[in-house]
């Protein structure tokens, strides 16, 4: 199938398995929000999909291709870490073009694509700015532009709105949602924040103790929680 498919994944660090027999599908244009208590394995799952951790068991398929053992740099997955991971020694343009530069694209191609991506995230004119001169929201958009410049097959976002102040958060979230609607790739975002989930996603997966306990349409999961624990976890949605 097109999109991302995880089958019976077991993953973790050395002898300790954090993800246990996890299966999950994310359709080609879907946005899935992954929620769960601290230590439930959300970040470990992102790192496993990204290729930083190799699963001990199971398979990861992206657009019908088995990528379980494909090196991280060959997966073509756009990744936005919680702190955006921007490179402080490069300006905005060079950050966005980084993925193209390491692929050996010509300088002209790099600039053209970087400008297109900066236009997509509405940061035209910021090309020569230093990273240190940007606000939290601008950094997030540069990180997104950089992740999208490589034309990824999947987008992973780790707490994308956690470093944005409350005042600008609504605007940033709105822009993010607009951007998501234009992207025809599966998107997974991890968040602790119920408002962010409600605003950005159409599909919700609840992760508890290394497993997906419940997944489905956001509204359905909120209305019909499978267990009392999930009900408690999703309580803020109903307030």
């Amino acid at each position: 199938m097109k999109g991302l498919s995880l089958k019976n994944i077991e993953a973790g660090y050395s002898d300790r398995s954090i993800i246990k027999d996890l299966s999950l599908d994310v359709g080609q244009t879907e946005t899935l929000v992954l929620m769960g208590p601290s230590g439930s394995g959300k970040s470990t799952l992102l790192l496993t999909i990204l290729g930083i951790l190799t699963p001990k068991k199971g398979t990861i398929t992206l657009n019908d291709k088995d990528i379980t053992n494909v090196p991280i740099e060959e997966r073509n997955i756009g990744y936005l870490p919680q702190d955006y991971g921007l490179f402080p020694h490069l300006n905005v343009m060079d950050n966005v073009a980084y993925g193209l530069a390491v692929r050996g694209k010509s300088k002209e191609d790099q600039e053209a694509m970087a400008k297109e991506m900066l236009s997509l995230v509405e940061l035209m004119g910021f090309e020569k700015r230093r990273i240190q001169e940007l606000s939290g929201g601008q950094k997030q958009r540069v990180g997104l532009a950089r992740a999208l410049a490589i034309k990824p097959h999947l987008l992973l976002l780790d707490e994308p709105l956690s470093n944005i102040d409350q005042v600008t958060k609504v605007d940033v979230a709105s822009e993010l949602r607009k951007l998501f609607s234009k992207l025809e790739i599966p998107k997974i975002l991890v968040t602790h924040n119920h408002e962010d989930a409600l605003f950005l996603s159409e599909k919700l997966a609840i992760m508890i103790d290394g497993k997906i306990e419940q997944a489905g349409e956001l509204n359905k999961v909120i209305k019909f929680p499978k267990t009392p624990f999930i009900k408690k976890l999703l309580m803020p949605f109903n307030q």
């Binding site: 991280i72 740099e73 870490p81 490179f87 993925g99 530069a101 390491v102 692929r103 490589i150």
Partner: peptide
């Protein structure tokens, strides 16, 4: 510790390029 090396790899840089560019 910042994880910048992993972000660079996710963007397509092999470990040697991460060494030289990051």
């Amino acid at each position: 510790q910042t994880g910048m090396n992993l972000t660079a790899r996710s963007l397509g840089a092999n470990p040697f390029l991460v060494f030289t560019t990051i």
